[in-house]
Design a protein around this nucleic acid. Structure first.
Lengths: 122, 122
DNA sequence: CGAATAGTTGAATAGTTGTTCAACCGTTAT
DNA sequence: ATAACGGTTGAACAACTATTCAACTATTCG
């Protein structure tokens, strides 16, 4: 999902103390793939439509049409975003007749959003 | 940062039960502006370079050049992303001679990243 | 002073992303 | 069977975003 950029020569003069800081900084850095997984995860929450969907279905499962009505959007747009949420396992669904009811896949999702809300209100 | 889409007519047939579901869904939905603030906040974390910076400076303040060396990127690219982190008050800095040392603005940032890491490892 | 280094910035470009539109599939009801 | 509805999908387009490049500021040092 993103390009890899590694092992480019630093452009600044590297005194001993800085070399030490760089060494320590590298040690704190997670694996590249983990960094990408993490940013991809946050990207899912970085869209107001997807957040809206998560809030809407939090507590009561809803079908696509009703989610679209709640958000004031087309079924298609909502369905596209539900696909993203599905792929990241943030929602689960079950079909009932012509309807597909979506709900939060677990309470973990709620936690993450609440933590962020806390930070914002300050 | 995003377009507003509201009060579009729902396209699906609205039986009474669905009207009730929609009503409840709307009640759970936060204010539009709050939804945008929240998604904007997550967007900041939705980039591996910015996450890398946050991990790198977590624990020890670092100057731009050293951050660039840790990540294997140019100073310019790092500086651009530091600006985003500054604007969202996730980092603070102080100048020492020619260097600008950046550090995490508070422990809240750490918490949020850890919560997400928990969710991913599963 | 002038040269060198650290950092910032704006414009340009390439890549990504969200919504729309139209076509499609599956289920239900006539 | 066929029409109608709920939902999904792929292509296209517009808007956005991250990196690069070059130019710039500020500070230090000779």
């Amino acid at each position: 999902m993103e390009n890899i950029k590694q092992d480019i020569l630093p452009e600044c003069e590297l005194h001993e103390e800085h070399l030490d800081l760089i060494e320590r900084g590298r040690a704190r850095l997670p694996e590249t793939t983990e960094l990408y997984d993490l940013s991809d995860f946050f990207k899912v929450f970085g869209d107001s439509t997807r957040l809206g969907i998560l809030f809407a279905i939090d507590g009561a499962p809803m079908c696509v049409c009703d989610i679209a009505a709640v958000l004031g959007m087309t079924k298609s747009a909502v369905s596209h975003q539900l696909k993203v949420l599905r792929q990241n396992r943030l929602v689960k669904y079950n079909k009932v007749g012509k309807n597909v009811f979506y709900e939060l896949s677990d309470d973990h999702v709620r936690d993450i959003i609440e933590k962020a809300l806390e930070h914002i209100e300050e």
